[in-house]
């Protein structure tokens, strides 16, 4: 992988984080609590997953920790139009 590839990948990752919100798929979640446990600002992500609602809290950093940690692929980033022209 070249430096250019690396930078492009990093750019894509940052764009996803800024323009996305964490969205759960309730049918996959078993409420294990790993998402909530690892949230750096203590958002109860698991509650959102139970209700099947996206994490729309303004505090959410979209850091991706819960998405990456979820062992069942319940959470994903969904694009929002907030920053779109």
């Amino acid at each position: 992988m070249t430096l250019r590839d690396l930078l492009q990948r990093d750019r894509a990752r940052r764009t996803t984080l800024v323009t996305g919100q964490v969205t759960p798929e309730a049918g996959r979640c078993v409420q294990c609590g790993i998402c909530t446990y690892y949230c750096p600002i203590n958002i109860d992500v698991r509650r959102h997953a139970w209700l099947g609602e996206p994490v729309q809290e303004s505090h959410c950093l979209t850091c991706g920790e819960c998405v990456a940690r979820c062992p069942r692929g319940v959470l994903h980033f969904e694009r929002i139009e907030l920053f779109q022209p």
């Binding site: 294990c32 609590g33 790993i34 446990y37």
Partner: peptide
């Protein structure tokens, strides 16, 4: 409580 979560409690991944 989350019965599936017990697996991660056993490994120490969650409190």
């Amino acid at each position: 409580y989350s019965r599936p979560g017990l697996a991660y409690y056993l490994t120490g991944e969650i409190s």
